[in-house]
Design a protein around this nucleic acid. Sequence first.
DNA 1: CAATCTGATTGCAATTTGCAAGCAGTTGAT
DNA 2: ATCAACTGCTTGCAAATTGCAATCAGATTG
Lengths: 162, 162
Amino acid sequence: MSHPHRSGCPINLTLELLGDRWSLIVLRDVMFGGRRHYRELLNQSEEGIASNVLADRLKRLLANDLLSRVDDPSHKQKGVYSLTEPSIQLVPLLAQMGAWGRRHTPTTPELAIRAELLEAGGPAMWEAFMDELRAIHLGAPPPARSVSAELRAAFEKALAEA
Amino acid sequence: MSHPHRSGCPINLTLELLGDRWSLIVLRDVMFGGRRHYRELLNQSEEGIASNVLADRLKRLLANDLLSRVDDPSHKQKGVYSLTEPSIQLVPLLAQMGAWGRRHTPTTPELAIRAELLEAGGPAMWEAFMDELRAIHLGAPPPARSVSAELRAAFEKALAEA
DNA sequence: CAATCTGATTGCAATTTGCAAGCAGTTGAT
DNA sequence: ATCAACTGCTTGCAAATTGCAATCAGATTG
């Protein structure tokens, strides 16, 4: 079957799953960008992922239970991709990545707003966001707080000011 | 010169720097494993990095200010690699990676101990560890708390119990 | 029935990876 | 003084991965 693992170190195993240039981009777009279909991920990707790479990454993420897929009732070829509990729990990791990137890389100010807000919100905000994602992607009861609305509002405010 | 960035998104830019299978492994070994020389990184690597890949990654990490290098006075061919302030600030990111990996990948119990302790310690422990790394790698005054000693003790206790 | 949209696949060149061997200089023991 | 071991690092090469453009068959829409 597939190759064995390089080691049993948690950091290494996480890297084996997500340590490439595209997997986390796809998950980010599903998580923060609300992309649920192949075409949305392909065409509305800021970074311009190639279709074969997207197909491959979706396959791998599905195989590793980081995404799930169901048929879209409105179109017999469409699939709807959803986050899973493991990928929802990547929120703190992505928040830290955003926070680090904002400080140490040449980010675009508008795109950095969300990272800044998410860092300032801290673990309480991350938990609220995870609850919201569980409602959207896993059918859990909707929480009171909508972090995605907060992020969107902050992003649009930043856009308007620029 | 070099290629332009794919986008100004903080997560993407972090991925462009660190989104490969080896860069964070090298930084992890310097940070948690106390590796400071090329040979230490090459031979004591749990995952078995190839020498040409290690050479390339060290070059890239140096170029991106995630490592620094000075000559070793004890040996005219040796270099000593040190973390920089940006890479020291990766501690929270690596802590989150370890915490996620411990929950969602088949980690080795002994190797998971440090991740568990680091997660339980939370931001206070991370800050203390960063201060310790600043002392070791940047020549800052030594802090009172030694997180590396705590991690080592926990690791060896786990080894002894197994 | 024709145009468009769907999620992909294919062919191909370029890059990256993994593996083994090798290299010039340095050190330390005899 | 000699020699084996060690230093960081390069080279050659096959295999795998990536990036890009074109293409595909089925589904839907006008």
